[in-house]
Write a protein that binds this DNA or RNA. Structure first.
Lengths: 230, 230
DNA sequence: AGCGTATGTGAACAATGTCTACTTGATTGG
DNA sequence: CCAATCAAGTAGACATTGTTCACATACGCT
């Protein structure tokens, strides 16, 4: 099911074989070389296709061409693998937002710039959710089992979604679009809006709503947040 | 694990026994009498405790005191049982909102009444989410597999959350608090806000935020929606 | 070179969803 | 009133999953 190309195969000691319609890695060396990352990559692909519940430990090991137990040398169990995959998904979300945010550059009008920034964060978030529902759901719809026992959570690289949103809200406040009284915890308020729409559209009662309409609602949400917090 | 009292035991032909720390129903009649509802009730309790992933078909049958296959006389499979449980959870959500909404009665000030109505819907929703996280997550965090193939979805009884929200927004518009231009699809916008906060707090990055703070943010969200849509 | 240990192998276990064949007994038509 | 029918539950089996324990191997360090 998983694509043959991609970030698999840490080194070059692998060959591919088919086994029960599943591409597996057949290696010549006893050691895999980079099993941990291979498992995460396989899990990421499974999450992309089927969401968090589709992240199967045994299938990941099958992909990497090792026996199921080998995974336990790198993860305490399936939950920990899933958590690593979740972390990877979160990075993708952040990257998508960052991409969208790079598009708006500061100009004369600092208020317009602030507005564009907030818009970029919100729509980048929502756009990723529509484009990659499985990854998005995995990034957030994970039961709080282990969930952030490791501080590598934010240390992945770059800024996480929350920090990017904070940046946009700072610009709002600096340009006078956001009252000082409303600034505190405004991240949570703004985040809630697009997050709710995304999940209602992905795995909620709005799951048959066309993407364009969801995005149009997202635009209105951003405006609502602007007006509501001004 | 499940409580001994409650909506189990459709008729009086049962006795209870312990088996592997699980209370099971031991019946004397060959027929169970109301197996379908017994399975849903058991599933509901499992959902209450552990969310959607904890709804195990075999455990439900164990509870009802029948063999696993008996469930297949009433449900096509685990997914269909889960969907029935999800529907039951949704009814609970609606009931919680309705309770909250009954508290606010119309007075002289129609605008205050409208505001109170919106507040009741939002906080009733959020309050239920905090009080019954498992049921709330089950009501909404279900992958869109079968998901509303049966129109009994809304025909359960009373109004569903969406309809209650519509009612509150109608009051907002009638009292002049909500512009006609903004009325269209305002349900989705308002819903998204509290839904997002609830899920961020339940199974998202905000899962360690204290309940009082979540509720306080909810209050601010309601105000934000009011202002943003006025 | 040789050894210790990280890493993968083998085999096994319990639990889950699901299937096919069978039994049972409540309902109902004659 | 009685037997046939057929829905509802039983019995047993199978594939898949997560997980554990004992064992093997070869990587890399001294």
């Amino acid at each position: 099911m998983l694509s043959t190309s991609g970030p698999f195969r840490g080194t070059l000691f692998f060959e591919q074989t088919m086994k029960k319609n599943v591409i597996i890695e057949k290696r010549k060396t006893f050691r895999h070389g980079d099993l941990r990352n291979a498992l995460i990559a396989a899990g990421l692909e499974m999450a992309r296709v089927g969401g968090p519940n589709a992240v199967i430990l045994r299938e990941a090991t099958r992909h990497a061409g090792v026996f199921p137990n080998a995974a336990y040398r790198h993860f305490a169990g399936q939950a920990e693998l899933l958590d690593a995959v979740r972390s990877a998904c979160l990075s993708r979300v952040a990257a998508a937002i960052e991409d969208e945010m790079k598009k708006c550059r500061p100009g004369r009008d600092s208020q317009a710039f602030a507005r564009k920034s907030l818009h970029a964060v919100g729509m980048g978030y929502l756009g990723f959710a529509m484009r990659e529902p499985g990854m998005f759901r995995t990034a957030f719809s994970v039961p709080p089992a282990i969930h952030e026992q490791n501080p590598a959570h934010t240390a992945s690289m770059g800024l996480n979604p929350f920090q990017l949103l904070s940046l946009a809200l700072d610009r709002m406040q600096e340009s006078g679009l956001l009252g000082k009284k409303n600034r505190k915890d405004a991240e949570y308020l703004a985040w809630s809006t697009v997050h709710g729409l995304a999940l209602l559209a992905l795995e909620g009662p709005l799951h048959k709503m066309p993407h364009e309409m969801v995005l149009a609602l997202g635009e209105r949400l951003v405006v609502m947040v602007e007006r509501g917090l001004s």
